[in-house]
């Protein structure tokens, strides 16, 4: 029995071998390595078991604590940016109506997504440039010379310059999610409410907002996950500086591993961020319930 069944199934398993070979080698194996080596001092060649020392060092390291505080600012503002601005744009597009105009605006807002993300980052670096940057040039043009700044190079403005990156924060997945959801709403219900005397604001707060709760939830989760992992922007714009004013845990992880060959410490930060993501995602799914 077992040989004939094995033959019957062997083709299925055989077909799955390539996919699993790839995910075991390049995903599961590295994850296991990360967990093991978060308890070691590791230079990629030799490793030495040091228990929880990496985690202890992490929580007593003032750079890491600054990074964690910065991360809180980044994540909270990232959520607000993703929840508010794309929603306002999507709502206004449906408010002014007209299929052609709707299409035109939607296309316009997602146009920046045509370019690789790194180009947008480099463009914003230019916008913040103290000499030839758009912001300072604009200030000079309107006579506010005294307001000009080395936006990314000054500790007082650097972190807010990174938060402000990408203003008005519309081009992106949240906008497309809202746009699709609003477009798919039951128009008859809304018309009925309008006839009964509800004004636009009431329709928005009493009908649109409750209807969009699932979208808010998805966007919040996705934003938290990407916010905690996002450091390419920081790496290119400021490298975490000046000082440590814009750094975040992911950036510190990168520097620990690839800057000073502390791969064990880097792994410990990676594992910690992973656990934070896990807990926050769980919390989101559990407590931001959709039952309205």
């Amino acid at each position: 029995m077992s040989t004939s069944r094995l033959r019957k199934y062997s083709i299925s398993y055989l077909f799955l071998v390539p996919s699993f070979l790839f995910i075991f080698t390049f995903l599961y194996y590295p994850v296991i390595l990360a967990f093991i080596h978060s308890f070691t001092k590791w230079n990629l060649v030799t490793s030495e078991w040091i228990g929880f020392d990496n985690f202890r060092v992490m929580f007593s390291d003032s750079v890491f604590l600054t990074g964690a505080t910065n991360q809180l600012i980044y994540t909270v503002t990232d959520i607000l940016k993703a929840l508010i601005f794309p929603l306002v744009a999507a709502e206004l597009i449906f408010l002014i109506g007209g299929n052609k105009i709707k299409y035109l605006f939607r296309t316009g807002f997602i146009l920046p997504m045509l370019l690789p993300g790194i180009v947008t980052i480099l463009l914003w670096q230019n916008i913040y440039d103290p000499n030839n940057g758009l912001i300072n040039q604009l200030l000079i043009a309107v006579g506010l010379d005294s307001w000009t700044h080395a936006w990314l190079g000054d500790e007082t403005t650097s972190i807010w310059s990174i938060v402000f990156f990408g203003f008005p924060f519309i081009a992106g997945l949240p906008f497309l999610i809202y746009y699709a959801a609003i477009g798919g709403m039951n128009q008859e219900q809304i018309e009925a409410a309008r006839i009964d005397g509800a004004n636009r604001w009431q329709v928005f707060t009493k009908m649109h907002i409750p209807f969009l709760i699932p979208q808010f939830k998805v966007i919040t989760i996705l934003t938290i996950i990407s916010s905690l992992q996002d450091f390419v922007k920081i790496m290119v714009l400021t490298a975490g500086g000046p000082g440590v004013s814009t750094t975040n845990p992911a950036m510190i992880m990168y520097n620990a591993a690839f800057g000073s060959s502390q791969y064990g410490y880097g792994s410990a930060i990676g594992v910690s961020l992973f656990l934070v993501i896990l807990v926050l995602t769980f919390f989101n799914l559990k407590f931001l319930k959709t039952d309205y």
């Binding site: 390049f26 590295p30 080596h37 992880m253 990676g270 992973f274």
Partner: peptide, 15 residues
Amino acid sequence: IPSLLTIVPLYATIA
């Protein structure tokens, strides 16, 4: 699995 978790150990694997 967030990609951040695997950056360091994936580099070790590749190496």
